[in-house]
Design a protein around this nucleic acid. Structure first.
Length: 307
DNA sequence: AAGACGAAAGTGGTTGA
DNA sequence: TCAACAACTTTCGTCTT
């Protein structure tokens, strides 16, 4: 314990605890971290939760993936009878072992960095643990296939997360991923497509209904409006208005109509912002919805009532 | 004054030769 | 590999409330 620290500046307690591994000095009474001199490379892993079991899980999952890697790869052993080999073959043997060592440590190092980044982005987006794990798995596979080469680690992480979100039906838009990871939208899209294609991951086109809940709460709309929006979406799907169109645009338009019908009017601008599309797109989808779903009457009725 | 609407031109991605 | 194409965006002017 450094001598210049005598008591906790927060509560005055002298009951201090020095965690040498972490380089922290912690007050046992109020929990304040008084000193953390040591550079802590595991920082992000702890920043976002206080729960200790969570901490362990965070550290645990990546290790299983690195173990998993060991399980797949075959180690070049040390106990072979080298005397039966020719000099040439013996040199080859040593060379191979050296290379394997280099490659496996490189992969591990990359994984550690990448998974820390993945945690950071995932918790920024408040993604559930299952998605995070899936993304970690996808990323690990990508590393093993050498898909990261020539691409930035961060963009592959973002792509893996995007894929995991889609698979678990908790889609985030590319814009959100982009904001969280600091990678350009098109770059994420590109690595996403590349990685899923190379790994043979098939992903169904995302369902507009998956977006409704999130957009709806962002706009502070009622539950009825939300469920009605989903009904509108189902009708739209039957009328084949959804194929080929951006799911976010459709979701936004359905929500916009539903809000109108429930007297919770939001401007096109507001809806467009949370959905990450433009007003124009909402207008186009909105127009189609009105035409095909016979909703004009209802809208007109509403207008008359107000006048 | 703000929102809604629509036209026109531009962008990035997919598809089919 | 390139051009055609559809969806979407941006921009801007006009109409409505």
């Amino acid at each position: 314990m450094p001598s210049y620290i005598k008591k906790c500046p927060e509560c005055g307690s002298i009951n201090l605890f020095w965690n040498k591994d972490r380089g922290e000095i912690i007050c046992r009474d109020c929990g304040l971290v008084i000193e953390d001199k040591m550079v802590d490379f595991t920082q992000e892993w702890h920043n976002f939760d206080s729960d200790s079991s969570e901490k362990r899980r965070r550290a645990g999952a990546p290790m299983t993936y690195t173990q998993f890697d060991q399980g797949l790869g075959t180690d070049i052993g040390r106990k072979a009878d080298l005397s039966v080999l020719t000099t040439k073959n013996r040199n080859k043997f040593f060379r191979l072992r050296k290379w394997q060592y280099r490659i496996s440590t490189a992969i591990e190092r990359n994984l550690k960095l990448a998974l820390a980044e993945l945690k950071r982005v995932a918790s920024y987006l408040k993604l559930p643990g299952s998605v995070e794990e899936e993304a970690a798995r996808v990323y690990t596979l990508a590393v093993q296939k050498g898909l990261v080469r020539g691409r930035s680690m961060e963009s592959v992480v973002a792509g893996a997360l995007y894929a995991a979100c889609r698979r678990h039906e908790v889609p985030r838009t590319l814009d959100e991923l982009s904001e969280a990871s600091g990678i350009e939208k098109k770059e994420i899209g590109r690595t996403y497509r590349f990685v899923t294609r190379e790994l043979g991951i098939t992903i169904f086109p995302s369902n507009p209904a998956d977006y409704i809940a999130r957009f709806s709460s962002a706009l502070k709309l009622s539950a009825e409006t939300q469920s009605n929006a989903i009904e509108i979406l189902e009708q739209a799907q039957k009328a084949e208005l959804t194929s080929g169109r951006g799911p976010t645009g459709i979701a936004a338009a359905a929500l916009y109509v539903s809000a109108l019908l429930h007297g919770e009017k939001r401007t096109q601008r507001e809806v467009a912002d949370v959905a990450g599309v433009t007003e124009v797109t909402i207008r186009n989808r909105y127009k189609e919805l009105l035409e095909k779903l016979k909703l004009e009457k209802e809208i007109k009725k509403l207008k008359k009532k107000k006048i």
